[in-house]
Design a protein around this nucleic acid. Sequence first.
DNA 1: CGCCCCAATATTGTTGACAATTTTTCGATA
DNA 2: TATCGAAAAATTGTCAACAATATTGGGGCG
Lengths: 224, 224
Amino acid sequence: MVSIATTTKAEHLLESLQKAIVEGDLQPGEKLREPDLARSFGTSRGPLRDALRRLEARRLVLSTPNAGARVTSLSAQQLAELYQVREALEGTTCRLAATHMSDNDIDQLDHLLSQHEQAIKEAGGRRYFRQEGDLDFHYRIADRCGNALLRSAICVDYYPLMRMYRHKFSVHEGRPTRALSEHRRIWSALAERDGELAEILMRRHIAAARKIIEDSLLNETDHD
Amino acid sequence: MVSIATTTKAEHLLESLQKAIVEGDLQPGEKLREPDLARSFGTSRGPLRDALRRLEARRLVLSTPNAGARVTSLSAQQLAELYQVREALEGTTCRLAATHMSDNDIDQLDHLLSQHEQAIKEAGGRRYFRQEGDLDFHYRIADRCGNALLRSAICVDYYPLMRMYRHKFSVHEGRPTRALSEHRRIWSALAERDGELAEILMRRHIAAARKIIEDSLLNETDHD
DNA sequence: CGCCCCAATATTGTTGACAATTTTTCGATA
DNA sequence: TATCGAAAAATTGTCAACAATATTGGGGCG
């Protein structure tokens, strides 16, 4: 939303490429050829390589020596692993947020959930609002948890990858309504400043989503 | 221990610089001037900048646009935050390891703890063996937890930073003997394949170390 | 005497060319 | 016809020069 005046070309490239990957303009597994990309963004290979390294740190790109870089392509197995990392990190995040968030933060989070409820009603329950909305909820909690390292690990290092894969198993994650009610329960725990409960609820919430993905691993029959 | 035949100069630089930082040859806060460093390693600035970006991903280096890179310098506050991330990640790691480690892995871990016991005896209880040893124990569990993403997050992204700061609060973390006995209890849970207990014990173990650091934050009287 | 501004210096950001490596193409041979 | 291998093309790794930005040092002014 906010267009940051990036000082360096490498930073600008990082933003542009991350957006292209997250929004699917660059498909998972796609080869990232340096000369082509650099030309298409009007720069040289130096800044481009810099941006690729930063994207690699965010796990959006995988590059192998002398063989170039590709957009990350996660298997269901790997996506499940990502959810396990989220469970660990966001559980703690939630516990910290319960004591660190301001009353205003809590209010804004409540407002966000109202927006989601509204969006779900208008869309008849299976619109994609929720998917972005779900991530927004999680993102905001991490953003306000008070631990800068944890915040950057989640918001910077892992969430772009999550957004990239938000379509993949979105249908299976149960009706948006269910996710919303789980969010509301987490919110209540946060509002009551009950960190222990907030952590448990958040871990369950993410573990449930992971379960769906892991179950789909067993039904490996009709994939090309 | 194993000298990997790194194919590219940037990779070699990454290894060399990481070692220099972790071992303290490059001090926290030290400015990393590209021309000097490149010359001292016999390469040009291109590969060096590449290596710096990778070190930044591991949080060993902090670089600001147009102002260059510095070796990371953590405050006690930030170190405590790191322990909180560890608590989250390694708790889950331990739970997974309990079901995923092979019997052989468990045996080797037992052997490691025997070595530590021996080292502590020989050194009269307050030798620095333990500090490396402590990290080795944690590292091995993460290495064998069966979740590749979690493994790389801990072993690659966070542990070099831990090793870099292993001297800092090592004295305060209680006698090596106590850490060893906590390790033994964690090992027992792993050996009995009790993931839930292993997670709880690991989180406590790390939380206790964090407590020491946080307490030292309150005694801020005699620092320059 | 201290502060601010400006020039000089040093350092980082960027570029295009060259070297090394990988991938592709194409023909020879079984 | 399929397969192996070598030449050709494309791509990545590296380098040194140039441009843009920050830092430093010194002189003038209040």
